[in-house]
Design a protein around this nucleic acid. Structure first.
Lengths: 130, 130
DNA sequence: CGGCATCCTCCAAGATACTG
DNA sequence: CAGTATCTTGGAGGATGCCG
């Protein structure tokens, strides 16, 4: 059995990038916004729509479906008139929220720095056309 | 001056979503892959291209430029023949890498669960057409 | 109210070819 | 080797209209 990790390759490969899979799940434009807005408790469709500025009805639906499919949140329908549908993070959804927190922290801490870096970069002479 | 935080609004708004800005920086298809591959030290262009399977020359260039502009990594040119260009994470880039680690962890831990959730969802009767 | 179906637009990203 | 330039396309995402 020569199967197990014979690390003879000089190539610097870590495990085949889960990175890609994470991005497939929450790397789109709206998913993390939805998760974030649900972190304080369940919300209804229209409440979410109002909370997430700029999202279209379609994209909210699509995003919610995707997150529901992935087990990140649950969709609860109360069959009344008018309809009442609420969305809530699953336990796994909450752990996801936890996992994204550091990244949020990071952005808050470094956004200024990044803006500065951009300004510097854009001011470079070698970037501008001759 | 009524500027300071008068939190009278009943709306459940946290701070105006940095989430979006993070995604603008690293939410695209390749950025995090690049960052991840550079986390163990500097690499040259072609080394990166080989390491990140499926990336095109163009997208690697574009991604690297963007990350350089944001101050996530540095580009170092040695003017020899043949050309030698290497990319390395800045200190800020390394903190970014740290910040994404939990999310990576999360995906590794939960991907199986997610697959299961998807299977369950797809097996639902109400999803299939009549 | 909370969707789904349809149409349309636009740009991210791939393929290819050329250059310093 | 490390790019840039150009062309092209798929699909993400917006707008609108109808339905239970």
């Amino acid at each position: 059995m020569t199967t197990a990790g014979s690390e003879s390759r000089p190539t610097r490969q870590q495990e085949p990038c889960r990175t890609r899979e994470v991005l497939d799940i929450v790397g789109d434009k709206w998913s993390l916004l939805v998760v974030r807005n649900l972190s304080q408790g369940p919300l209804r469709f229209t409440e979410l729509k109002r909370a997430i500025d700029g999202i279209s009805q379609r994209m909210l639906t699509v995003t919610l479906r995707s997150l529901e499919r992935d087990g990140i949140l649950t969709r609860t329908v109360r069959n009344v008139m008018p309809p009442h549908v609420s969305y809530e993070l699953t336990p796994m959804g909450k752990t996801l929220r936890q996992a994204t927190a550091p990244l949020l922290e990071w952005s808050i801490t470094h956004l200024t720095h990044i803006d500065a870096a951009r300004a510097t970069y854009d001011a470079r002479p070698d970037t501008s056309p001759t």
